[in-house]
Structure formats: structure tokens, C-alpha cells
Design a protein around this nucleic acid. Structure first.
Lengths: 89, 89
DNA sequence: TCTTATACCGGTATTTGTATCACGGTCGAT
DNA sequence: ATCGACCGTGATACAAATACCGGTATAAGA
């Protein structure tokens, strides 16, 4: 095996990650946010739906800037699955 | 053209980005940092030398954690080439 | 009803990231 | 001089990111 396929955990992390971005997007349309970030709407949609679980750093950086999010908080939030427990608590 | 090839500016940004990581690594060996971050040493080498100009977000997040770096500062630093001017000012 | 806007999905194409292997170079120690 | 630990480069291989296309569905508005 040359390149390790994404593990189920990585895919789940991608789903949580995308959910965070979608939540942060709020009422704004995918097209608008994607245009501001300089990525295609298709790419944003795939990231939000978790079908692109490990996007590139600068793609996320641009989206985080467009959505006014902190990269550190973003990484910390989806790295910990027990966050939902902390949120519901 | 389906996927846009990386622009020269993106490649230069990758070089600056890698230089930042290398500087942050300091005296520590590539092998050690890569092991802590959970990536291969070859991958870290490619990122540091700019031969992998757009690495994945979580790879960078793991490296930043291993190097005790802020993702926001990292993104801001290499996104603006005129930063050195701002820093020296 | 018809149009428009938005989002989802499957397929396709191309580039890139990630990892392994092999080889060579440098430096310090034995 | 040989050994070992790094670092660097090239080739190779495979999986995934990105982007574009066409189609579908839904909801709001003329």
C-alpha cells in the first residue's frame, strides 16, 4: 500500500468538519462563500457534505477567512469527537 | 482544464510555507517531528522544501501541533509576501 | 404555469498529496 | 576507512482533491 486510504475515523472527522463550515455559513449561499474564498461551489459542497474529508490547508484557510473562523478553533473542534457531549452539556 | 494546475504564486507560497515550518522545527530532526505529527518523514521533507505546496489541512494541523505553532498565524504569515516588510516595520 | 435560484448527486478529467523504495551526499565517531 | 544517522533527490504507485458537466429536486416569484 503506497498511500494509506482514508480511515473511517478520518471520514467521520471530515463530516464533522463540514458540518462546522455549514453551520458557520449560516444564511449565505454556497456560491457566494465559495466565490469569496476563491474555490468552486462544488468543492465547498463536497467539503461541507464530507465527501472531501481531507481538503487542502489553503482551501480551508481561505474558507475560514471568508467565514470569519479561526483555524485553530476549527482544528481543535473537529479533532475531538467528544465535543458534541461538551456542547450538549 | 478540469483541475487548475498550481499557479507560480501558489508554488512560491508553498516554499515560504515550508520555510516557516523548517524554521519552527529548529534543532529537532525531521524524523522526530514527522513521527510526532503522524506523517512520514518524506512528506514533511516535501512540505518543507515546497515540493508539496498545498498539503492537506489536517496534515498541517498535526505538524503545527507538533511544532507548537498557530494555524492562524501560519496562514497569515505565508499568505502575505509583504509580511516581512510589515514585520520589520 | 413558467422561470429562477439553490442545493444535491453521479460521472469524468486532471493534478496533486502521501507513502515507499533506492541511491547518494555529508558529517561525526569508532 | 568504515559505520551510522541524518538529509536530499528521483522514480514509482495509488488515493484523493479540485473542477466542470448534466441531471434532478425543491421552493420562491412573476
Amino acid at each position: 500500500m503506497v498511500r494509506t486510504p482514508l480511515t473511517p475515523w478520518e471520514r467521520e472527522r471530515g463530516e464533522r468538519f463540514g458540518a462546522l463550515l455549514r453551520e458557520a455559513r449560516g444564511e449565505r449561499s454556497m456560491v457566494e462563500v465559495a466565490a469569496v474564498a476563491g474555490v468552486s461551489a462544488e468543492t465547498l459542497r463536497k467539503i461541507e457534505t464530507g465527501r472531501a474529508p481531507t481538503p487542502s490547508f489553503f482551501t480551508i484557510a481561505a474558507l475560514a477567512f471568508a467565514l470569519d473562523l479561526s483555524l485553530d478553533e476549527l482544528a481543535g473542534a473537529c479533532a475531538l469527537p467528544e465535543d458534541d457531549a461538551a456542547l450538549s452539556a
